[in-house]
Design a protein around this nucleic acid. Sequence first.
DNA 1: GATTGATATGAAAATCATTTCCATCTAGCG
DNA 2: CGCTAGATGGAAATGATTTTCATATCAATC
Lengths: 149, 149
Amino acid sequence: MAGDRPRVAPPQDVALIGRSTQQRATVLAALVTAEGFVSARALYNRLLNGGSPVGLSTVYRTLTALAAADRADVVRDTNGERLFRYRPGPDHRHYLICTECGLSLPVDSGPVEKWAERIARTSEFANVRHTVELAGVCPDCGRRHVRAP
Amino acid sequence: MAGDRPRVAPPQDVALIGRSTQQRATVLAALVTAEGFVSARALYNRLLNGGSPVGLSTVYRTLTALAAADRADVVRDTNGERLFRYRPGPDHRHYLICTECGLSLPVDSGPVEKWAERIARTSEFANVRHTVELAGVCPDCGRRHVRAP
DNA sequence: GATTGATATGAAAATCATTTCCATCTAGCG
DNA sequence: CGCTAGATGGAAATGATTTTCATATCAATC
């Protein structure tokens, strides 16, 4: 798009995951700029092309640390690859993700939260976590395809 | 446990995924016998120890085919490993899985189904699928642990 | 601003689940 | 029985992620 300003990551976010380094700032900024979910490799390539190369291991390390610090959401695509997404706030959300372009829309997850909570409460299980993923093809990507009947 | 009888898979299930072979029957039987979700490798080892070795590739091929034929549920554990579970009927279910022992309990997923359907309908996305996973520690496994405060 | 010790980096090697290759075997039809 | 498309399995390939380890850098201290 024409009018998107480069969004930079709040510097304190870098500090959250340890020492504040050039590379971490770069990776974080790239993650913030990315609109949907991105894979570590995609981010790595993006940085390469953008002229700010960061080692692949460092990209992985940074993303993993961000996820551990609840600064990023993580999902797995169908191939088992992990996709990361910057999360400004600490709130727990669920997304509808386009399987073609990675575009993600936050969805109203109230009902699922309540449902998951009820299951957790009525079960004897401890420490119940839940993952919910909605995936489909977004309108733009859908238009790009001729669909066989 | 002492009193579990060996459950065998309905023979027609083997035919569902192509030609009926000894190996496929073996894998399917082992999957049916397994109580919770199992990984391909776990199943492979089980067959090795049980004296009915089947090639690892064949185990993978069979499980993948079963999943494709809606004869098995598939989830991913935290390490990205795929876990399979035999599903007798064609109905779509969700489970509460124990992260320690793989024990799985089917849960009432009506509300999530409705929710997912509504999101799918109101979004512009096509072909919306959903995955829902509830994971925790089952009572038995919970008792086995001393928990730090 | 130099010293320094803990931390971070990155290239290459290691790991690990899963897939593919391919020579060989076998259902199952005629 | 004989045939052939489909199935098998061990080894090699793949691909994402992690580890290793020698080197570089942060940031607190002198």
